[in-house]
Nucleic acid binder design. Structure first.
Lengths: 151, 151
DNA sequence: CGCTTGCTTCGAGTGCACTCCAAGGTCATA
DNA sequence: TATGACCTTGGAGTGCACTCGAAGCAAGCG
């Protein structure tokens, strides 16, 4: 933990997307191989969307069963978790694909990844500020309507 | 006149969308009649979008010059301001149109308008919470990438 | 007067992020 | 072993929020 946390339990890849997050592996059940519908149920995405994510390069290669069906791992779930978070910052899918590519390219893209995340961070801060602003307007109007009613 | 105020000009109409906001009339210049391109410049929307807003019922009737060209008032700018705020909360345009309809229907829709705004308010609060959450994830990852680089 | 710029309308086109379909193969259970 | 739920693919379709185009009218200027 102190010096160099292995990126994943079972495969210590430095490039792993989620190394910085606290491990929360034990998923729905204890397994590490989920069907597409299990993942759909767990993430709230549809199976269609999961396949589409893969097609556009937002998910790197997903394991397959001997008959070719997708078998998602806990690592994939972690990644989908991050994608979900980034998605609700309003980050375009194309940018997330870019990030995914950087991850696939290996450790030498660390700097670029950090920059990308820092840009996103600024966007999120800005968006929060905007929303606060909007909240103030909303509150003013709600007050107005409330006080009008009791006049 | 008293009982049913005409809903135009600078008169304090109860139904006015922006009664609850502090007046900040003096716009770009001191006037109260702007062309569509002036409004476009001021709001950042395109003329196309402004016309489209009108078509779908998001703007109630806009004044016209004697030759049929649109002449926007400060009141219209106020409304566009609100629309802009609501838009960036992620509120669908259809809901904003609904709100616009309520405004057009008159004072007896005050309650419904307040409810709509309160629902929106909750949405905004929820979204801010989500964004904070995302920010935490982002910060963790940025830290990770920074510390990796300086190892 | 001609020229440029800006306005009008309506309908069609765009880009994004899914979302669904058809045709067929696979898996669990009665 | 048969039934029905679930999986595969590529490609087409959907909904939203614009965005643009075409044809034509109008205003200001040298």
């Amino acid at each position: 933990m102190q010096t160099l946390p292995a990126a994943t339990e079972d495969t210590p890849t430095r490039t792993d997307i989620c190394s910085a997050a606290p491990r929360r592996h034990p998923r729905p059940d204890g397994q590490d191989r989920y069907t597409i519908s299990e993942v759909a149920a767990f993430t709230g995405l549809t199976a269609h969307t999961l396949r589409w994510y893969e097609r556009i390069g937002l998910m790197s290669h997903i394991d397959r069963s001997h008959t070719g069906q997708r078998r998602y791992t806990n690592r994939d779930l972690d990644w989908l978790d991050l994608v979900g978070k980034l998605r609700l910052t309003g980050m375009p899918v194309a940018d997330m694909v870019r990030y995914a590519e950087l991850v696939r390219e290996g450790d030498h893209t660390f700097d670029e990844r950090r920059e990308l995340l820092e840009t996103t961070r600024q966007d999120v801060l800005a968006r929060i500020a905007e929303l606060r602003d909007t909240l103030a307007v909303l509150d003013r109007k709600i007050d107005f309507y409330s006080s009008e009613r009791t006049r």
